[in-house]
Write a protein that binds this DNA or RNA. Structure first.
Lengths: 216, 216, 216, 216
DNA sequence: AATGAATGAGCGTTCATTCAT
DNA sequence: GATGAATGAACGCTCATTCAT
């Protein structure tokens, strides 16, 4: 992978304030930021490499020094959001709360993360098919890992009676994350609801379907 | 191109009725069918007009005779599935059944229709942003019309007490249709579940969230 | 293969004298002529497609309408000279002359043909390795076919005693054609010797090695 | 390439002792060895500087430290083989043997040297035109010097009656060396004949053409 | 002596669309 | 209605070379 493409990175603890004019960020980050915005605005295939490097203030040669191909940018965008969401989900799942609270935390969190990185999500589901098959497989595997962890959480709740058992855990997961992944099609950050609010309500809807039926 | 390399295949094992020699379908339909398959397989941007006309067994000139541009094909694919789904939804909504039964029918039906025309759905959500803005607006308006009709159905149920009122009808609609529109990412027609089965379970999950709470 | 790429072509039986200004020749021929000159002048990799189409007075699009890739031009240049040389060799080999006269005719002819199409020959041996492997294999097979026909002619002469038998027919063929294929490195059409003269002398040298030894 | 395959040969026959870990050879040689192999395998134009330095285990900066440009590598490869062949030819020509034996020794030797350094020869005749004109002129002059020395040897034999005089010494030289220079197109080191065997037979063919005619 | 990030010009190729026929 | 040759602009990518370190 390209150097400097880490995401969370706590680099630069010291303040290097004095950088007189240009490059605040390393080149790979600048490219990723520019690409994310442009891909979300006009689509992957409709954005030229020239537009990306112009927006990032570098040359094509520099880009190809760090990324092997245009769709490596796509891959990095995916990998980045996937890494963030997986790490957060695992923290929530493994917490000491009740199972309802843990599932609710996962649900709220994935909505909040999704709307925070809405561009990445939009790009992801619009353009995954344009990724090189090998990288596509990697991304799918990682996504599947995420879903399966959540499915096991639900099954755990079903086995203890915390959740009703006559709902397919797998289908509930596909249903819920389908709804989440579709947020990019309608959610507006400048609209009436915060990500947190949507997350709470989505969590309600998810838990509605798993609450043990008083009549059964 | 070699003579006889047309796509429909001149095999004619028996006499399939009166179609004496060539074209089973009119040219525009053949083009739409070919385009749908190719767009779903490899994406709109990645499919060339040449590939479409080859697959349809016609020439470029013929295509431009019927369609003003490549993205007119996209528009027609959208319009077609939208017309079908809207008509079916309206029939279900306006039936004489109970409101629960009507909402359930709508839910099952949109899932069944979606998986029946999975290619169209996949193309739709992947490529809508590539459509000419004017046509994109038309498509969005039609989609909104659909969602709003269903939202009003839910609100009607909430006002009569058939559905619980502490769920936002609008959000429930976005949530549910989000899940439905995402089917293309995981549903496989050759998998274990029929469209009808998924539809029934999705309907269960939708109604779970609207069933009046026995405790409140 | 591209339309109109035949070489000997007896087309144009009628005299179309009146063509007022431009295109004397069909586009594919114009491209091949321009490419041959440029490849010989500066090499295949050093000549850009843009230079070729400019020299031919057409656009890139037109070129790619007739040739699938830049190296299809190379292939056509090879195939053209190979076709000509093979046809002429076969005519000479199958004539009614004595075997010495037939071999001499082949030898003279391949030299004459080579210096007549010296550009093609130079390009051929300089750039064959840049051809797509599949096409390279085709070209090699055709070349081998040529060599083997001549080898059999020599073996025929050896079996009848017309040629001495203690020279390897195969090696003689490789030796002689090696010398011929190298003509492009030193022969100058504006130099002191005509192709016919070089051909006669090369033929002498070839036959020197096959003349039955008076002492053995 | 295996250690010890250097061209001048007498280095370190015993004592490969103290080379503790890495670089057996100095950087320029490593680059030349890598470049030779790659140019022969895929051609000069098709081999990137990056590939060469990777194969040599150095960086681009190191290469440009020793060689002014990519085609300096080409020039060095030419100069190297030319130096070797010229030195060996002069030794043979100036020996005390009969003129027939001296010409034969030259002929055998150039074949043996050529197949021993077949990669260099292949590169030479494929890519000489890509060399900077000045360096190309140097190389041609050196090559001409070689040919002329051999031509004078033949003329010497013709003037003494050792060789027949009705063959053009110049043409015989072009003919013979043409055949030799073409060895790279068909000779395989893993084939049935050793370089020595091919050399002997090539020498026979050369001398066949110069043997005084018993009938004239 | 050696690094490797960065340049910048140029490459082969694609492709939606047009238009004379 | 339909053809298919031709356009022309743009595309992703390569690469020899430079240069601050």
């Amino acid at each position: 992978m390209a150097p400097g493409s880490s995401i969370g990175g706590a680099e630069d603890p010291a303040a290097q304030v004095s950088e007189s004019e240009a490059e605040q960020e390393p080149v790979p980050q600048r490219l990723l930021t520019a690409a994310t915005r442009l891909f979300a605005e006009r689509g992957f295939e409709t954005t030229s490499v020239q537009e990306i490097v112009d927006a990032a203030g570098v040359t094509k040669g520099a880009m190809y020094h760090y990324f092997g191909a245009k769709d490596d940018l796509l891959y990095e965008i995916y990998a980045r959001i996937l890494r963030v969401q997986t790490a957060r989900m695992e923290r929530a799942v493994d917490s000491a709360e009740s199972i309802q609270q843990r599932l609710r935390a996962v649900a709220v969190d994935v909505v909040v993360t999704t709307v925070t990185h809405l561009d990445d999500t939009v790009i992801f589901f619009r353009s995954m098919h344009l990724l090189h098959p090998d990288k596509q497989a990697e991304v799918r595997a990682q996504r599947r890992h995420y879903h399966e962890r959540v499915r096991r959480l639900i099954e755990e709740g079903q086995s203890t009676g915390a959740f009703r058992s006559d709902r397919s855990a797998e289908l509930v997961v596909d249903f819920f994350f389908g709804a989440v992944h579709h947020l990019g099609f309608w959610y507006r950050r400048d609209g009436p609801m915060s990500g947190q609010q949507v997350g709470e309500q989505f969590a309600d809807l998810l838990l509605d379907s798993l609450r043990p039926d008083s009549s059964g």
